[in-house]
Structure formats: C-alpha cells, structure tokens
Computed example of a mutant assay.
Amino acid sequence: MSQITLIKNAEVFAPRSLGRCDVLVAGDRVAKIDQHLTLPESVGQVVDADGAWLMPGLVDTLVHISGGGGEGGFGSRTPELDVRDAIAAGVTTVVGALGTDATTRTLNELFGKAKALEAQGITCFMQTGSYQVPVNTLTGSVRSDIMLVDNIIGVGELAISDHRSSHPSRDELIRIAADARVAGLLSGKGGVISVHVGDGSGRLQPLFDVVEHSEIPISQFYPTHMNRNTSLLEHGVEFARAGGFIDFTTSTTEEILASGEMRASQALAMALEQGAPVDQLTFSSDAQGSLTNFCDLGELRDMEVGAIASLFDEFRSAVQREKVEIPRALQVVTSNPARALGLKRKGQVAAGRDADLILVDPQRFQITHVMAKGRWQLFDRQPQTAERSD
C-alpha cells in the first residue's frame, strides 16, 4: 500500500508563496495542495505543521560525493559524503561529480556512491567526466554514458580558466557539448556541461566563443564558482543576461574570502543589483571538494573541505543579511538548479512532483523535518532511517 501523509497548516513556499495550505503526499509524489484537506480515519499520517514553512527539498548540483583528491598530496584526499549530513542540511537531491583527480578517484566509485545514496533515501544523479579533456567515461563515449546509464545526466566538472584544467580548445568544447546535447535530446535528460571556472584571465570567454562560433545554445553550459571575484561575477552577469545559468559556490573559508572571493549570498545580491535575472542564478555547495587557497605562484597555501550544510546556510544568509525575499532566495537552491540540469520532477512543491519537502521553524530559521521521495528522513530534528556511511 502506498504511504500517505497529510501535512496541515503549513506556510507553503513552492518556491513562490502559496500562503497557509495543506499538502497531501501519496507514495513518492505530491498529490494535492489545498486548504482544509482531510484523510479518512486510520488512513495515513497527519502532521500539523503549525505555521512552519514548507519548502521543496534543496537541490545541490555539485557534490564530490565519493570524495576528492586533495591538491596537498595523497594525505589531503577528502572524504566521501555522508547521507546524514545531506539530510540534516535539507538536501534531498544531489549531483555527484569528479574534480581535479580522475586518476585515483574514478567514475566507477562515483557510480557506486550515487547508488548507495539512493538506497539510503535521497535522490542522486552524477556527471560523466572530470576537469580533464579528453573526457573520461564509463562506456567509452559521452553520448553512450548519458544515454545508457540511468543516473548520468551530463558532463562535469569540466575545467576552464584554471591552471589545473586541460585548457580545452574551442573545437574540443564544441564537440563535447554537441555530444552531450544530442545524448540529452535522445534520452530525455539535460545533457548539460557543468563547468568549473577558475580565476584565470579568460573567465567565461571560452564559453562565449563556443556560443558565437557554433549552434550550441548558451544554456548547454552551466558554469560554477562565479563568486570567486568581482571580475568573474560581472562576466557571469553578462552570461546570465544572455540566457545562461550561473552558479555560486556556498562552501568557502575565511582565507579564501580574504583573497577576494564573495560569499554566495553576497554575490546573489550583487548579481541581482547588476540586472541578472533571478531565474538564471543558482547556489551549489561543492561539498567534499577541496577548498584550496593558492598563492600567486600557484603553490598551495592551505586547504579545507566543502560542507553540504553551507547550501542552507547561504540561503538563510541571503534572506536575513542580504534581504532577498524568501521565494527569490529559495528558487536559487530549488527550482532554478533543477531547471538548469533538466530535473523535471525536482525543485518545486506541486502536484505530480516528487515529494521532497522540508519544514523550517520560522522563528529560528532552522530545518526541523525532511521528507525525501515521500518518506520522512528527519522528523522533529530526529533522524529516521538513514545510516551513517563508513
């Protein structure tokens, strides 16, 4: 029998504000949103939200779920994601990717970890490839990976304008994007290229060049780390105004901020002031990635590990410190990233969408409940079913 849950008296942000509503969940989908809904006696579970904010589960489009290779040597390799950390942070959908190290961190490991997270209760997709070109794949080609592997939705994290990248040519970028685009069209997936952008002087120019010299639409590229510095942010605003999505990284350190990076919440406010469409802006955590601080000579100064909790923290900061309205800030961590990667059932509270929901205490601005795929994973701040991975 399908699990049925009725959540009553919630202030629903879908992410747009729907006011005080009841939300009916049947199985793994939202069935109905309305006022004064009821269930027959002894059928399902009724939860009184008592005015708590009900929101979509957060969608995190860049997580190094299987851990990453640290740029400080083998001793600085980062750990893989623990599912309970994602749940506590309100993240119900993650997209796993490799980064700098695609030699000792492999797509096989990434695939296995993605399936493990699915079994532990959340939704997990993955990208084929890594920083490097030629793109490493599971099946021998980008097109086959996207078309034949159920949870592979695109390519990433492909690096440009960074001393750690392969410095791909325009033609190489065009060929990769074309293969991913056709595969996405044929399989009903996004087929998007998630792009790591470093602090090199080229900024986003390689992507603009591809769009100018090919038929590849700007939406085929999804650049991240756009809050590295004000110059990159300004280039990103131009990219967003041209119709592309841009992403701000929520994990950071005080040392990196001191070198010129902006907090994601601050970058969001600045981008909006500069005329970037809010519908084209997203946050991702870069969780489990190595947060590196290099000196001008390219030598590593220090390194920490990205945290998935930073995604909700920066959403909250955007509302509280930067005074961005809740629906606008919320879409940056829910519906916008889902649209950017073509995740059609994610990122919204609506009938027929996946029942990925969080309840937030409006007084403390803290997550109290998390539902993923129709099942409570966190209830009144208490973990329900997820087990910590070793």
Rank of each mutant, 00 (worst) to 15 (best):
R170P: 00
S42G: 08
Q363H: 15
N229W: 12
T61H: 04
M147K: 15
S144P: 00
G200F: 11
D82S: 05
D199W: 01
A180D: 05
V370P: 10
R164G: 01
Q382I: 10
R364P: 01
H196C: 05
G75K: 13
T368A: 01
A307Y: 09
S214T: 14
F315P: 02
P15K: 08
F315E: 00
N9T: 12
Y131H: 14
L58A: 06
C295S: 10
V30P: 00
G342Y: 08
V91Y: 10
R20G: 01
G129P: 00
F379H: 14
F379L: 14
L204I: 07
R77A: 09
D247R: 03
G70Q: 09
Q331P: 00
I367G: 00
A114Y: 06
S194F: 09
P337C: 05
T61W: 10
S219Y: 04
V142A: 10
L281E: 11
E273W: 08
T230S: 14
G306I: 06
A287Y: 05
I174K: 12
Q288A: 02
L81D: 00
G57Y: 03
T104N: 15
G75H: 13
R241Y: 01
G347I: 06
L81K: 04
R84I: 06
D60I: 03
N227M: 09
R143N: 04
L58C: 07
A386M: 13
G289Q: 01
C124P: 06
H196S: 07
T5P: 01
A102L: 09
A355Q: 05
E261P: 01
E71C: 11
G140R: 13
T92Y: 12
V25A: 02
D390Y: 10
L330T: 04
G57T: 05
L207T: 08
V23T: 06
A116N: 06
S141P: 09
N9P: 03
I174T: 14
